[in-house]
Every structure is written in structure tokens, then in C-alpha cells.
Computed example of a mutant assay.
Amino acid sequence: MGTHLITGAGSGIGTAVAERLAERGDELWLVARDAGRAKQLADRFPGSRTLVGDLSTPDRLSWAMSKQQVPDRLDSLLHIAGVVELGRIGELTPKAWNATLAANLVSPAELTRLFLPQLRVAQGHVVFVNSGAGLRASAEWGAYAASKHGLKALADSLRWEEGGNGVRVTSVHPGRTATPMQVKVHQQEGKEYDPAAWMAPESVATTILMALDLPRDAEVTDLSVRPSG
């Protein structure tokens, strides 16, 4: 049985991954932005543990984690939470940039720093759920793509730094997936949303578990998955 710390377990891909891990009896530690959300996650995943930490304020994560019981070992740290705010570069404000970078890049970096000792103990696995936007940027996706390009750089550097400690690092780059984030994107794009047109979160979860379950003599470094058809 593995021990996993997950951000973003409240919806979309994060929920699908947490469900799969819970079904096979693994131990879950779920990060929630506040106490109310933590209770919802605990009710949704009986037997799981919750940690309260707001990814919008990465400079407070160290303090928040120091006030709570945390796992003493981790087989994986799964960075799945994220935010998106579309807009042209000439219109995006520092507030939009800072909010996007805080949640999508700085908080994953900080949580990784905080939990590296537990990952080293278990020779664990850090998974960054990135995006196709982490490989290429399009008009009006500048802030989001910048955060995801940075997330890939974070993963690549971490892999070089921690490989000698037995820590594996994987970036997963999903295409458009039928999640609440996708609903927001379509609203910002002014387009009608049809979830059947995109990948199910469960499909992305399958790719993540494949990377986690790979034998110890191999490592998936980068994995892209796209809607078929």
C-alpha cells in the first residue's frame, strides 16, 4: 500500500486519481484550501487524511504545514490542482499573473521542497500534471502557458537534482479534458461546452497511475495524452 499526497482532489483529474488510489487501498493525504473544503474531501474519501494549505498563498504553506500532522513518508506527491485565466498579454494585470503563477508554479515548488524529506525516505515519485500549454503557447493563454512552461522546468531540474536520491519525477501533459476548469475555459472563450468532445478525467488518471506503477528500473519523464478522434 502506497502513501500519496494529492492537490486538486476535489474535482476533475484529481478526483479521478484519488478514487483509483483509494479503490486499491492506498493511503491518501489530500490538500484543501480551507477547513470547509477539507471536511468535504474527508467525507468524499473515507479514511483519507487532509491538510489545509491555500495554494494561492505559497509563502504561507510552510507555516500551515508546520501546524499540522504530516506523513512521515511519501510514495508520491501528485500536483494536480491548477487555475486558468485567459487574456491577451496587453490586457492581463499583475494580479492575474501573480495568481496564476502562485497556484500553478510557486506552490508546487514549495510543497515539493517541504515534502522532499518524506519522498527521499520512500524513494518516491513526484508527478506534475502539466498541460499541452506547457509545451506550446497560444494567443490569450500567455499567463497559463508561462506557468506551465515553468512547471516543466521545475520538474526537469528536480529530476536532475533528486535522481541520485531515488526520487522519480514525471510531467504529464494532458490535452483538453472534461473538467470544471474546461467549463471555465469555454466560458472565457465564449464557446459552447460539450464534455463528450474531450477526454474523461479517468483517462488521464490511467496515464498517471501507469507512470506511478512502472517498475523501479524505469522512469517516465514526460507523457503527453490527447483526446482521440
Rank of each mutant, 00 (worst) to 15 (best):
S107C: 06
N165Q: 14
E161T: 02
L30G: 11
L151C: 10
P94I: 09
L119W: 00
S66N: 04
D43Q: 15
W63C: 00
S11N: 13
T177L: 09
A143F: 13
L105P: 14
R73Q: 13
T221W: 07
A18I: 01
K148H: 08
S157M: 12
V126E: 10
G134P: 11
R20D: 05
L135P: 07
E162I: 00
A197H: 14
R226P: 00
S76A: 15
E140I: 05
G229N: 03
T57Y: 08
V167D: 05
M181Q: 15
V167R: 14
G90C: 05
G25V: 01
H149R: 08
G2P: 15
L41W: 01
V204S: 08
G190S: 09
V204I: 10
E85C: 09
T206I: 02
D156A: 15
G8N: 02
A145T: 03
H4R: 12
E162F: 06
G14R: 03
E23P: 06
A178G: 05
T3R: 10
V83W: 07
R60Y: 04
T170V: 07
K191H: 11
L214H: 02
A64T: 05
A99L: 07
S56P: 08
V185N: 10
L30C: 12
I89E: 10
L55V: 01
E85I: 09
Y193P: 06
N165V: 02
G14W: 00
A81W: 04
A197V: 03
